[in-house]
Computed example of a mutant assay.
Amino acid sequence: MGSNQQDIVEAPVLARRRHLLDEALAGAGVRINGDRPWDLQLHREEALDEILARGSLGLGETYMLGDWDVQALDQFFCRILRADLTRLVRPWRNALRLLRSYVVNLQSRHRAFEVGERHYDLGNDFYQAMLDPRMVYSCGYWRAGAETLEQAQEAKLDLICRKLGLEPGMRLLDIGCGWGSLVSYAAQHYGVECVGVTVSREQQAWIHQQYPDLPISVHLQDYRSLDLKFDRIASVGMFEHVGHRNHRTFMKVAKRCLKPDGLLLLHTIGKNQRHSATDPWIERYIFPNGELPSAGQIGDAADRLLVTEDLHNFGSDYDHTLMAWHTNFEQHWDQFADRYGQRFYRMWRYYLLSCAGAFRARHIQLWQWMFSDRVEGGVDRVS
C-alpha cells in the first residue's frame, strides 16, 4: 500500500471529534492532546463522555484505568479548579450526595474504624517510605524557613507545642495521634505526659514499637468514648473524619476532657463553602466517610462551649508538603510495585497530585484553630 493510501486509511482513526470537554478545558488553559505539561493526553475517546457524565468520580476512575494521562497532574488540577470546572458536574448528583450526608451519619461509631482499616493500615513501611522520619501525615510548616520535609514537619510540631504553651508535668491528649509524631515530639522536647487515640491498629503498633521509653500511652478507640481530664488537647488531621453531624459532639468531648483554663488546638483541612459535597473520588478510594468542615461549621460546633482564641491558615504549605510526599512515593515505588500493583500506583499518584493542585488553587485550606475552655454560663453543656 502506498503512503497516500495509508494516510487515507489512517485519517479517520487519527481524527478526533470535538467534545464539550474541549471547550470547557480550554477555559482553564488546558488542551486535549496538547504539548504542554498540564495538557491532557487522551488514550480512549469514550473516557470524555464518562468524565462529563460522572464528574470527579469519572475523571479519577478513567485515570486509574489508564484512559488518559497528564505529565504534571498538579498543574492540571490547579488550572481546572481555579477555572471552577467542577460546575460541569450535574447538580443532581451533588444534591443526592449532600442529602445522603444529612440523612445518614456516615461517621457513626460503627463506621469509625473503616478509614483506619482501609487507609492508615496500608502498611507502616509504605508510609515510612513516603513521609518524614517522624511519620507526620499532615501539613508541614514551610514558611518558617524549612528547606526539607523533615524540617517543615518538625517546625509544625514545635509550632503546635508553643501554641499550646506546653510545660513539664502537663498532660497532653492527641485525638487522632497518627504514628505518634506529636506525642513523641512533645514528650521529648517539652517534658509532657501524652495520651494518644487512633482508629488504626498499625499506627498503635508503630508507636508502641518506636517509643517504649517515653511517657506515652496510645489507645485504639473512638474519640467519643474519651472521658479523662487533660491540660491540653491537640487534634491534627483527624477532624476531617468527624463529619458535620458530629462536629458538636467532638467539641463536647473536648470540653469534657479539658481541665479549667485548658487549651485545644484543632489542625484540619477545610473547605471554602459550607454546603458542598465531599469529593466522590476521594471518599470512595482514599478516605471513606471523610468530610471537610467549613469555617462556619467549626465555629457553630464550638459555640457556647469553647472560645476561639486564634485562627491560622497556612494551606498553601500543603502544596509543598504533598509534592514532597509525591517525590518520596515515586522514588520508593519499586519497593511496593509487586504488592500494590499499577492501579494503586495511578490511584495514589492521582491522590497526591490532585490534592497538591487543590491547595495551590486555594480550593481547600489548612487551618489551626486555638480554643480555650473559658466559656461561662453556656446553656449547651456537655452531657
Rank of each mutant, 00 (worst) to 15 (best):
M1P: 06
Q5V: 07
D7N: 13
V9F: 10
R16A: 15
R18A: 12
D22K: 11
E23M: 04
I32L: 13
D35W: 09
R36V: 11
W38L: 08
W38E: 12
L42A: 11
H43W: 04
H43Y: 12
R44S: 10
L57E: 10
G58N: 09
L59T: 13
G60E: 07
E61W: 08
Y63E: 01
D67N: 14
D67L: 00
D69I: 00
V70R: 01
Q71C: 08
A72Y: 05
A72G: 00
F76R: 02
F77Q: 01
T86K: 09
T86L: 14
R87L: 13
L88N: 07
V89H: 05
N94L: 09
A95M: 09
R97H: 03
R100S: 09
R100Y: 06
Y102T: 13
Y102N: 09
V104F: 09
L106D: 06
L106R: 15
H110T: 13
D121I: 11
D125G: 00
L131N: 07
D132I: 05
M135F: 11
G140V: 04
A144W: 02
A144G: 15
A146L: 05
T148W: 05
Q153S: 11
L159G: 05
I160K: 02
C161D: 04
L166N: 09
G169H: 12
M170L: 15
M170G: 07
L172E: 12
L172P: 09
L172T: 08
I175S: 04
W179D: 07
W179Y: 10
L182E: 06
S184C: 07
E193R: 14
E193L: 06
V197R: 03
S200K: 11
R201A: 13
L220S: 03
D222K: 05
D222W: 04
Y223F: 14
K229Y: 01
A234Q: 03
S235E: 04
G237R: 10
G237Y: 08
G243D: 05
R245A: 11
H247K: 00
R248W: 05
T249N: 03
K255R: 13
K259F: 00
D261S: 14
L264K: 03
L264E: 03
L265W: 06
T268D: 06
I269N: 12
G270V: 01
H275K: 08
D279T: 02
I282E: 04
F287R: 10
L292Y: 02
P293L: 04
I298Y: 03
R304P: 00
L305I: 01
T308A: 13
H312I: 13
G315N: 12
Y318F: 14
H326P: 01
H326E: 04
E330P: 00
H332G: 03
Q335R: 15
R339D: 04
Y345P: 01
M347L: 14
R349L: 04
L353S: 02
G357R: 03
A361E: 09
H363W: 12
L366Y: 07
W367S: 11
Q368C: 06
R374D: 14
E376K: 12
